[in-house]
Amino acid sequence: MSRTSQLLKRTLPALAGTAAAALMLAGCGGATVNQAVAGNGSATPCGSVNVALNAWVGYTADAAVYSYVAQNKLGCTVTQKELSEQISWQGFGSGEVDVIMENWGHADLAKQYITDQKVAVDAGPTGNEGHIGWYVPPWMVQKYPDILDYKNLDKYASLFATSESSGKGQVLDGDPAFVTNDEALVKNLGLNYKVVFSGSEAALIQSFRTAEKNKTPLLGYFYEPQWFLSEVPLKKVSLPPYTPGCDSDPEKVACDYPDYKLNKIISKKFADSGSPAAKLAKAFTWTNADQNSVATDIQGGMKPEAAAKKWVDAHPDQVAAWLK
């Protein structure tokens, strides 16, 4: 007891001294928080932007470039949130999400959040055009030339059977969150197939890559713009052509997917705030090639931020046009 209190008497001043020294140290040398605040805050009154991050690389490319420009050219604080498509829309109501950078159709959500609840607004097209469909690896087309017609699919159903598809042919889908009519298509076109979910874009890509490399059969959901198509040019299976309204009842769909004019959605509050970042979101447009180049970089292992910087540095005029 007496020894501990002696120990105490000796250590206490030492501790106090350390603390004081640390405080002194704080006074001199090294960047201070205030300097950082001053350096950052002076540029604009941009504030903060919450960008939803949906789970495919093309989206990541859009979001990365937008975030990079907002952060570095406008001085905004950007927070990216990993969310699935529909959950992102819910975020407009709660203020968790300000921007969705690449929206695929979703007429029902647009009605709910833009028309009815008025918490979101359409911020115009991204300039990308989207196609969803069923694809097979190229080697299959060479071997089975008539496979690209949906009417012939049943003939090859046994080829596509896996342990997950209970004896039928397998249609490999991505994330359950992606826009898909595949279950209804299989049923309404009377195909002997079963939809199996791979869970993610990455799993889809890996499956197609393996299928092409090992020459194994695979039929799956895919879409463009997609950087992977430049690595393996997947072939699209033709489904009954799209006519306006043929997909209005999700349970009765028996036609191909429409061509999507991809667009951006921003929250009403954000749009009305007059933030320069909102203006940027509205002005942002680019081509499928632009997106694919950024996406390929990201997929190649580059950080999204770095890939965005590379593209922005290479396209100063386009970026300047957005910021005008």
Partner: peptide, 29 residues
């Protein structure tokens, strides 16, 4: 150690914590 010693040590520790917080609020690193 006795309760009293412990309290004194904890108090001293808290001073260090306050110093660290102050550092964090001023220095970027």
């Amino acid at each position: 150690i006795s309760r009293r010693t412990r309290y004194i040590l904890l108090g001293a520790g808290f001073v260090v914590v306050l110093a660290a917080i102050q550092l964090s609020r001023t220095m970027l690193w």
